[in-house]
Design a protein around this nucleic acid. Sequence first.
DNA 1: CTAGTTGCAAAGAGTTTGCATGGCG
DNA 2: CGCCATGCAAACTCTTTGCAACTAG
Lengths: 136, 136
Amino acid sequence: MAGYNTKQRSLILECLKENKDRHITAEDIYSFLSAKGEGVGMATIYRNLDKLLKEGCLRRYELSQGQSACYQYIDGEGDCREHFHLKCENCGKLIHLDCESLTKLSRHIEQEHSFIVNSSKTVLYGLCSDCADKDK
Amino acid sequence: MAGYNTKQRSLILECLKENKDRHITAEDIYSFLSAKGEGVGMATIYRNLDKLLKEGCLRRYELSQGQSACYQYIDGEGDCREHFHLKCENCGKLIHLDCESLTKLSRHIEQEHSFIVNSSKTVLYGLCSDCADKDK
DNA sequence: CTAGTTGCAAAGAGTTTGCATGGCG
DNA sequence: CGCCATGCAAACTCTTTGCAACTAG
């Protein structure tokens, strides 16, 4: 449970913090660090992401299968803790939805259906307004 | 666009129909047919599932990454069309949730956030009551 | 010093694809 | 007969693991 403070860990964490408003993949981190001239192995990135996940510093979004999982740094105050995400099936856009109706829904499901919704893993799929407009 | 009526396609479709109340994976279909003594190749199963998906006869649930996708036959009347699914992250149980609060939520998101939720692709993740009880 | 970390390459799981063979219509 | 479908194996993608070398504390 120790946990050393290695250069690689710092680099990865830094990269995550710089992108805390976005969702980035392990690959993104790899490219980002490579571009900086800091070669960090993929395995190391995955291992650190796992560790950070367990420490609760990150949230992980598993989007469609066959696609890389996305990670996002969790800011102290739990920025995105409570909200859900909408993902457009057409353009792939990811929308953060902070709305009390979702909080209400969670509470409802928990109370009436005895199921505790994990909002950080849940993604609502559908069509965003841009794509809906284009379609018609 | 033709589409021949092969033995394999029938077998796969039959298997899906027999399990229309469950969510089954490509692997499940493979085992199921093998058990029947009908050897159908994995590739064929995937190809047929893709085709059926495009034809709109199936719904596909992409659960966690690293895990097989689940498929479910869509009954004419759209049995599961309107409802959402809850998936327990612990035991993997899939719960069908037919509740008007979800329909309301969809409407809310569509009207207030201009996003059309696709309830057939969306899965709410969390902890089912059984697992929540065991944890504590 | 020594347990935790790294990096590489190899292993894995699930799914897709290339290609020759086989079967529907 | 022609085109679509099948099967096998190989390819692919993302992620995990084994192992020897390395490093933080």
